[in-house]
Amino acid sequence: MIQFIIRRTMMAAATIALISVVSFIIIQLPPGDFLTSYVATLSQQGDTIPEEAVTALREAYGLGEPIYIQYYKWISGVVQGDFGQSLEWGVPVNTLIWDRLRMTLAVSASSILFVWTVAIPIGVFSATNQYSLADYFFTFLGFLGLAIPNFLLALILMWIGFSWFDQDVGGLYSPEYQNAPWSMAKFIDLLSHLWIPMVVAGTSGTAGLIRTMRANMLDEINQPYVETARAKGLSELRLIWKYPVRVALNPFISTVGYALPELIGGVTIVAVVLNLPTIGPLLLRALLSQDMYLAGIILMLLSILTVLGTFISDILLAIFDPRIRLE
């Protein structure tokens, strides 16, 4: 077990290192270096920057030096918590992201919970009642959930809320709690807004997992051990949940690693439509205005979040199913 955890940790670390390289490449992709455009923006606003300051900055970021030295300077800053300057906002990237990252985490985590609590029971039900009316209904719903783009669903919900209930469903807080300090009331207000992005971002994931769960269950449900348990007189409900469901969950858990990147992507676009204070809208603005230091850091943090999530699910899986470790 310890060996397994060590190996996984090393792999996760290597992946994170590679992710930092990719993020750096993306920062470098737009033509021209960032300082030139930074100075251009500032002088557009009527600011004049002393030549020495520019040279000092040029020195600090290693611009004009070979690319690997630039990367080294950038990454040593990042490791120490210096994420560089946001071009558009004129403040350190640091001050912009942490609150929003926390919100992203909250929305993503609640989305995962939603997906799991909905997909597993429905998948099991669909499999035990194969070809029933409800099974067809859920299958149809599943296909539809996969086919509707997240942002369209968000848009439709907003539209319904706006035109029929005269309620603005965007955002995470009601206006009166926007700047209020944390309190129980604010938390409840947050929960009452959170369910929409949670459901919207979780829809396609739920649809996919219902299908996986149903297929896995169908493979298990006719196995002899199920028959044995039934012959012994176990009640149907206990029988299903105690044996085949546990086996069917295994391939399910191992695909969580792939579901996570998609979910975080989904949350990103839903947040743009619903105008949530998460990191998605910030990323979009940064990309549209070519504010690459901000964009690169956000991409990197989102990826690291994903890698950590996958890492945790791998470890959990290994604890629950000893067979995994042997592979």
Binding site: I19, G265, V307
Partner: peptide, 11 residues
């Protein structure tokens, strides 16, 4: 596959 797809596409 470990990088969130949509943000990567966006970038």
């Amino acid at each position: 596959r470990s990088i969130p797809t949509l943000p990567l596409w966006m970038a």
